[in-house]
Amino acid sequence: MKKILLATVCAAGFAAPAFAEDCGEVTITQMDWASANVVTSIAKFLMEQGYGCDVTTVPSSTPTALTSVAETGTPDILTELWVNTAPAYDELVAEGKLIELTDVLSDGGIEGWWVPQYVVDANPEAATLAGILANPALVGGRFDNCPDGWGCRTVNDNMNRVIDMEGNGIEVFDHGSGETLATAIAAAYADQEPWFGFYWAPTAILGKYPMVLVDMGGYDAETHTCNSSTDCAEPGISAYPSAAVKTAVTNTFQEREPEIAALMANVTFTNDQMNGVLAWMEDNNASAEEGAVYFLSNNRELWADWLSDDAREKLSALLQ
């Protein structure tokens, strides 16, 4: 890291002084999951090498990043925000503190209830909600629910009012944090035990441990909207819609560096592209930074279109 930073400072300082004046210090979030780390690494590379920015990555997560923006107006760029689980995002956009740039995962993330692949292989009926309710022993008689304060917690709890899992012999366990939720999946896989609960993709966890999305009988917009509010009068059962995964910048940054904001508005990935990178990382035991390098060296035409003419000129050595 130091080396890269040093190289970048040198690059910005000697090779292209004109750019150093154009783009100053930029802070960008580095969320604590795999796909976000890849996005941040790619964005950092493009900003440093193409635009001569001095990029600092800020390790964070969706709520901490949003709190920080609300209170201090930094970091400048927030990427891979899973806004479904963060009601504060809409408020900040409405207040004008944040400007939404794009859906960084253009297909949207997949949220829902999952069971491990090996459970479905052994018992195909475990892939539907009806099948699970008919035979709770298939999934170990437990539902791993979201932690308090997550958007999905409200939805799950509302749907459970209709399903009545406890009455069907499924104990609902409320996790305390995303970490224990992820570890519960890993622990179940280590022992090849059944598991049933909420998770989302693309994530390192679902990249590493293949899971099957439980069929809940389709998505119904009206029902889901009602399920999402704490005082939903008539909850129903609906699958989750694809989750919006956004990139946003602060309003001051948009004014200060419109060119970088324009770049970040172009940086989007389809789920196939992102899953490809994550699967390659898993196969090669690679870090997120190497995943970024893998993407950059294999999709040159794709990211060439994201850049401005000047930046394309600077990165021409790579683009030939």
Partner: peptide
Amino acid sequence: PMSMSQLLSQV
């Protein structure tokens, strides 16, 4: 896997 510094040297 190719590391970031190797990519940077290509730039």
